[in-house]
Design a protein around this nucleic acid. Structure first.
Lengths: 342, 342
DNA sequence: CTGAAAGCGCTTACAG
DNA sequence: CTGAAAGCGCTTACAG
């Protein structure tokens, strides 16, 4: 077995010393010239820059951070193996960090607290300047505590500790949006097929739906139906609902998958959507929403923006600003045929 | 605005010098003691280790890599924004690297070549010891070339250059598996509803299906139907198929989404699955497969294993081993009710 | 405006 | 077995 970095890959990367030699100046001057310090003769600077370009010099960030104290790296700690929710958050964050010339370390704790602790330590060992913890649901989670040497932002799954900084989608207002849209498209006998009630997201969305209906002087046409986040539940619940409350004219489903099940059941019962019943989902999951019949109106949780904001908050915290509390971010309704006004 | 790392986060991390001082030895001896060098008196070593634990010393990797030449970091460059395929690959790789104490930098090029070039440079600037490029489909892509100072492994989307190292799922054998399973469950009049024919994956799967049928002395009951990777296409194609070839008893669909569409169409036509027609998909996408009626038999592309292998290949390459060529990895069939023998 | 020196936190020959 | 010295690649006071 060949030695590390041998063979095909052998080639010493240029160092500042090489640049200085080529430009005929000291290493100190080369450094100043490249870093835009102003005590450098313009001609000298030009010569140094030319030399640097010529030999493709790129400063070694290890050396730089040894001096500066900062590494220019951040960590992204996810917990959602499937990535349904966390991926767009990661992408938004990665995007925002990249623009700020920060490099991103990725770790997946897979919802395991021990593994999470281990990855946090790995981040700290790497001397990240800060990190984001992405939860797998919106239920509050234990804080990592305050004896960390760098700032942390919790995204999607907020910290239980209100003095931490957390960014989550506003599920109550998501519920309100859903109900208001049903009302605005002319429906009055509205039902709610929710998901697993042990999830805060389910309860928050219910709260929003109920509040918006109350504000309009009305209420749900049937008690909230809790179940699971699946198509199967959407089908079952919808059949039961139409049996008990045949006059229902709007079904708010707490996830796109539940809504898919609901649409299937309605089609099989011969109930026209959106003509007799409007259907709406949450998450605006492209793969589920796009090909449904009819195309499904859905609440988009703006995950990518959430990730971008978490990144911005972290960057601000890294330069000394302090944030705390759970920041709830707006969501948006994407109207499609399943709730068209008739 | 406060100064960097000030305020709440102020706390100097312990350095080796602190450990040495506490243990009453030189920095050199402390280093040797902690790194298991054998020219250290056992008692001294113990004292140093105790001191290190006491003040929570963690070596600064910047300093270490400045000396060693290696950074202990690798890059993961993805191109698939939605993450449908690349996420499990990332996770597999992250998993394998983590076990080897390598930290992973993540970047998303979003399928843009310019952005990709930029991220490659960013990885090199960070002095990664190697990186993996994850494609968004299995079509060969331009090589990043050979004048890179570190090894690269291409995962999912192989490099056009056969002297690069690429790891892809074996789509031909995936097609074979599908056809063999249809035959094994007693079906003989088999059709293939494929996806977008501009994708190599679509053509490879066709090749496998056709070959396996030929090997069994039979052939497709109708010409391959190419279209798009959508449920809508699955519905349309299935309706057309049953019109033209009512005796069809097995439909191989080139993706789970196409298969979902096919199942929907069959249900609406009153054709019982799996009794009269068996249906099979590709990708084994949990969200699509789990709740379908009946549950869908599917070919799992083993993405996570693919990512893990790519990581292993990269690690080996980083220690001097040389790989080249496109390595095709086995896939596996997950049998469910949609192809049950009747 | 330029450069020699010190130092960031480590490791590794090399003396003792 | 232990430690002083040199050095990895940079930056930043400090003299000149």
């Amino acid at each position: 077995m060949a030695a590390p970095n041998s063979g095909r890959y052998a080639r010493r990367t240029a160092t500042l010393r090489d640049v200085a030699a080529l430009a005929g100046v000291s290493v100190a001057t080369a450094s100043k010239a490249l870093n835009g310090r102003d005590q450098v003769h313009p001609e000298t600077r030009e010569r140094v820059i030319e030399a640097a370009i010529k030999i493709s010099f790129r400063p070694n960030p290890m050396a730089q951070s040894l001096i500066g104290g900062r590494t220019g790296t951040v960590g992204l700690l996810t917990n959602d193996l499937v990535g349904r929710f966390s991926l767009p958050i990661l992408m938004g964050a990665e995007d925002a960090f990249g623009a700020g010339r920060l490099s991103v370390f990725l770790s997946d704790a897979r919802g395991d607290a021990i593994r999470e602790q281990h990855h946090v330590q790995a981040f700290l060992d790497r001397r990240v300047d800060g990190f984001i913890v992405v939860g797998s649901d919106t239920d509050p989670r234990p804080s990592l505590g305050h004896d960390l040497p760098v700032p942390v932002v919790y995204a999607y799954g907020p910290s239980e500790d209100p003095t931490d900084s957390s960014i989550v989608p506003d599920n109550v207002s998501a519920g309100e949006l859903a109900a208001e849209h049903m009302l605005a498209t002319g429906r009055r006998r509205i039902a709610l097929v929710s998901g697993d009630r042990t999830f805060l997201a389910a309860r928050d969305r219910t709260e929003g739906v109920v509040a918006a209906l109350a504000a309009a002087g009305t209420e749900l046409v049937a008690p909230v139906m809790y179940g699971s986040w699946s198509e199967g539940w959407g089908r079952t619940a919808t059949r039961a609902l139409l049996e008990r409350v045949p006059e229902v004219d709007g079904i708010i489903c707490a996830s796109d998958q539940i809504a898919r099940g609901s649409l299937d059941a309605l089609r099989e019962l011969g109930v026209p959507v959106p003509e007799r019943v409007g259907v709406l989902g949450f998450d605006n999951w492209e793969a589920v929403v796009a090909d449904s019949r009819p195309p499904l109106t859905s609440i988009d949780m703006n995950f990518e923006a959430l990730g971008r904001l978490a990144a911005q908050r972290l960057v601000a915290a890294m330069s000394g600003e302090r944030f705390s509390g759970v920041e709830k971010r707006p969501v948006r309704l994407v109207a499609r045929a399943s709730t068209a006004r008739v």
